[in-house]
Design a protein around this nucleic acid. Structure first.
Lengths: 104, 104
DNA sequence: CGGACATTTCGAATGATATCAAATTAAGCT
DNA sequence: AGCTTAATTTGATATCATTCGAAATGTCCG
């Protein structure tokens, strides 16, 4: 479960919209599919990608499959961004020719 | 400048590593390319994707091109994640058969 | 001007992704 | 058992991504 998979999963409008729906409450695969003008196999495929990225969990309830948001991976994302931004303290600007010449 | 482009740009190990390098200080395209075992055209391509996503800026300095991190787009990412997580307050769990039957 | 260097653009090969229709599995219902 | 509904898997196709070598662009310097 690398970060690449997570970001790839998030790099699609449909999948981010699915996550937005799931943030409001759990839904079955059919309910999710009905919210889009895409075929059910396509939505199933997107759900699988979100699942493999660890962004959602699925639970079988009778003939339905209920999908829910998994919030822990979101923290990995913000963690990566914060780690990135924390490296920014006291960093160099690249020196230009004049700056190099007079040792500024 | 959509979020999809940003997440797609982040969904690649090489590109995230480039960002990590730039977080420590600005670098020329050649310096960046030397840090990887990939051809210069390939690195140039990755830099272009990062640039189109708004994650880096480039500035021509003589025959060099200096790349730098653009931090504002990172805030868009954390903003999206926080907005997502803020929808989580008081959301429903999907009701199962028993819960539906006895009106729990 | 002409050569050396830095970087990008072009063309092509290979691999990944999105999408749908049709087939498949699984559960509920009469 | 047979039929319907829910969801996924499979197969096909079209589009997009990654990568490289070769060529092109632009800049510096003697």
């Amino acid at each position: 479960m690398g970060l690449s998979m997570v970001f790839k999963a998030l790099g699609d409008d449909t999948r981010r919209e699915i996550l937005r729906l799931l943030a409001r409450g759990d839904m079955t695969a059919g309910e999710i599919a009905r919210a889009f003008s895409l075929s059910r196999p396509t939505i199933s495929h997107h759900l699988n990608i979100l699942k493999e990225a660890g962004l959602v969990a699925d639970e079988k309830r009778g003939q339905f499959v209920v999908y829910s948001l998994n919030t822990t991976v979101f923290q990995d994302v913000t963690g990566w961004v914060f780690e990135m931004l924390s490296s920014l303290t006291g960093r160099d600007r690249h020196k230009g020719r004049e700056e190099l010449d007079n040792g500024k």
